[in-house]
Write a protein that binds this DNA or RNA. Structure first.
Length: 566
RNA sequence: CGGGGUGUAGCUCAGUUGGCUAGAGCGCUUGGUUUGGGACCAAGAAGUCGUAGGUUCAAGUCCUGUCACCCCGACCA
């Protein structure tokens, strides 16, 4: 492709409304152009990358017996009523009314379409297992589209659905797909970690997320570098070291003027944060209060707590606290009667500390040498702590660290939820009718393009992995010397004949512009031909990932490129 | 959905207490000089000042509605 003919060009400034690195670089380099928040045009360069990403996914899905199909985007609303998701997903559903006042939904996902579709063709256990997938556009009215291609309202997605006679067969297939997913991310040049999905209080526990490490990621992953265990921060488990053991002392009251925060409290009593007994109070959705007792230097994980309670919670308002006679800043589980409508649960971390300092439920009055079991009791101990760097891996006891990541894909064991909703049954070999067991597997294709840019760039521009680069070679002619122009042209023709993907910057413009554009666009290999290189009968060879360049003779160039391509 | 911010040329942005024919840089067109890290000279094209209404002798500028975009929060199968 000649750059002078390419639709979409680089620009000097990134757009003013681009926040994320991927939006900035992809727009500035001429890969995409925003139409509206979370809605993007893909220009030729961007489309070539997307196509390559999709083809990698296709190869990997085909390799696990997935069969590609294409389902519609426009869904009659009744199938969404059937599963109840017309209501539960209402906020993100784009809806439209057709003639005759018929309502349609723009598909945010395709369980509602694929289940009745497949049900028409499945009668017997002999028809199973089956796996179908599509690469198609999804629509979700995100409350807040942002981060360029990472969170769109219209976006590309590969969604695969598998159908099985029983759970065991699903489990087996699920593991196969995991491997295929790791292959996809690796081939796109990304490091992915599989983690148990965090979800909320009611999440399906049979699902996993593939998190891709990038500094700009929205998610925090707790990682054990030794054994490779990756966990979502919200539900991560880890061991925290207890404090040095000491003898339990008798509890004492201390009159004190202090601030409300743990830090101020610890300072006032001249003890480390960890010796403060912190009590966080939540309101439970169906009424009542629950107090979580935890070490002062640690935080409660809201998601872990909701999972433990199996109820939705929100932090208690000051009014709710006042109503039951609790004094904000001085709350503790000591000497509190459950009759006021509060119960206490303790995080395991408090077992490792003796002689806590805590409030006395009166303003200006604290207690010291408070010990669990002696001075107060809790209903139960639980793991409710938000894990952070310094905790130890639950598997191998190495120190855990945090990394930032973007969710690149996720996989679910759906079980028979959708089969039951649509009556998708099969006759098993015992002659009995049974519901089909389903799994589903998604990868955001357009998001993956954005993620690659987030993970692979420097201050000058994008650094495309060879596997997804729009072209392999960026050929540049410098100067307007006749011989240079002639040789550049014939070199371009030669590379095309050899089947090498090449972008030829044939513009009559300054060297700085061309070289900077090459860095911005980020093709894996830059080949410069100029008067200077011709003097040594060659071209300059520079890989985007390398700072150094070398002169390669024109005679050897094709051979060397073909080796580079591998 | 709550709080905050911004809409002026293709892009990035100026535009004073309301005042004449609305500006700059980049980009674009034409001619010339340049040609290894975003060159230079000359000439030129390009804007319904987001949109609707209002105040005023006069509105890019003030007021109200509305739309879009961005940020923080809520939310995120």
């Amino acid at each position: 492709m000649k750059y002078s003919k390419l639709f979409g060009r680089t620009r000097h400034n990134p757009p003013c409304d681009a926040d994320s690195v991927n939006a900035k670089l992809l727009t500035q380099a001429g890969f995409v152009e925003k139409l509206a928040a979370g809605i993007y045009n893909f220009l030729p360069l961007g489309q070539r990358v997307l196509t390559k990403v999709c083809n990698i996914i296709r190869e990997e899905m085909n390799a696990v017996e997935g069969q590609e199909i294409l389902m519609p985007s426009l869904h009659p609303v009744d199938i969404w009523e059937t599963t109840g998701r017309r209501k539960t997903m209402d906020e993100i559903l784009y809806k439209t009314r057709a003639s005759g006042d018929k309502e349609f939904v723009f598909g945010p996902s395709h369980e509602e379409v694929v289940t009745p579709l497949v049900a028409k063709y499945i009668q017997s256990y002999k028809d199973l297992p089956l796996s179908v997938y599509q690469i198609q556009t999804k629509f979700r009215d995100e409350p807040r589209a942002k981060s360029g291609l990472l969170r769109g309202r219209e976006f590309g997605m590969k969604d695969m659905y598998s159908f099985h006679t029983n759970e065991e067969d699903l489990d087996k297939y699920y593991e196969t797909v995991k491997t295929a997913y790791f292959n996809v991310f690796e081939r796109c040049g990304l490091k992915a970690y599989i983690i148990e999905a965090s979800g909320g209080a009611f999440s399906d526990k049979f699902s996993h997320e593939f998190s891709v490490e990038t500094p700009a990621g929205e998610d925090t992953i707790i990682l054990c570098e030794k054994c490779g265990t990756a966990q979502n921060l919200e539900i991560a488990e880890g061991h925290v070291e207890g404090l040095e053991d000491e003898k339990e002392l008798p509890m004492e009251e201390v009159k004190i003027e202090r601030g409300f925060s743990v830090k101020e409290n610890a300072k006032a009593h001249n003890v480390p944060d960890a010796k403060i007994l912190k009590t966080v109070v939540y309101e439970v959705e169906d009424g009542g209060l629950i107090g979580i007792v935890i070490r002062g230097d640690l935080n409660v994980s809201d998601v872990k707590l909701e999972r433990y309670m199996k109820k939705r919670l929100r932090p208690a308002t000051p009014e709710a606290l006042k109503k039951v006679g609790l004094v904000q800043g001085y709350i503790s589980p000591v000497n509190i009667s459950e009759d006021i409508g509060i119960s206490f649960v303790a995080d395991n971390s408090i077992k490792g500390v003796k002689n806590f300092v805590t409030g006395a439920n009166k303003s200006g009055l604290d207690l010291k040498n408070v010990n669990v079991g002696t001075d107060f009791t809790v209903k139960e101990f639980a793991d409710l702590v938000e894990v952070k760097t310094g905790f130890k891996c639950p598997k191998c006891h190495e120190h855990l660290s945090e990394i930032k990541a973007v969710e690149g894909g996720n996989i679910f064991k759906l079980g028979t939820k959708f089969s039951n909703a649509f009556g998708m049954n099969f006759a098993d070999n015992d002659g009995k009718l049974k519901p089909v067991v389903m799994g589903c597997y998604g990868i955001g294709t357009t998001r993956l393009v954005g993620t690659i840019v987030e993970a692979k760039h420097d201050e000058k521009g994008i650094i495309w992995p060879k596997s997804v680069a729009p072209y392999l070679v960026h050929l540049i002619s410098l100067g307007n010397d006749e011989n240079v122009l002639k040789d550049a042209e014939s070199l371009y023709e030669k590379l095309l004949e050899e089947g090498i993907e090449v972008l030829f910057d044939d513009r009559d413009t300054g060297a700085g512009v061309k070289l900077n554009d090459a860095d911005l666009i980020g093709l894996p290999l830059r080949v410069v031909i100029s008067k200077r290189t011709l003097e040594s009968k060659g071209v300059e060879w520079k890989e985007r990932t390398n700072a150094e360049s070398e002169i390669v003779s024109i005679a050897n160039l094709v051979k060397k490129i073909k080796e580079f391509q591998k």
